[in-house]
Amino acid sequence: MKLSKSLISAILIGIAIQTTLVSCGKDEQPKPQEKPKQTQALDGCPACGMG
């Protein structure tokens, strides 16, 4: 599916700034707008499978 260039650019900038985002980690995550202090190593999501 075709996505607009502006959306692709926004995602690119978003993930560059918010490198600590994880979908379902176990530790507290910063607010997406906060600047990350360090990259977190987090486990993924349990029920994506039975890990």
Binding site: A10, I13, G14, Q18, L21, Q29, K31, P32, Q33
Partner: peptide, 9 residues
């Protein structure tokens, strides 16, 4: 645990 979902997402 995400308090604010980014607008781009």
């Amino acid at each position: 645990k995400v308090k604010e979902v980014p607008a781009w997402f």
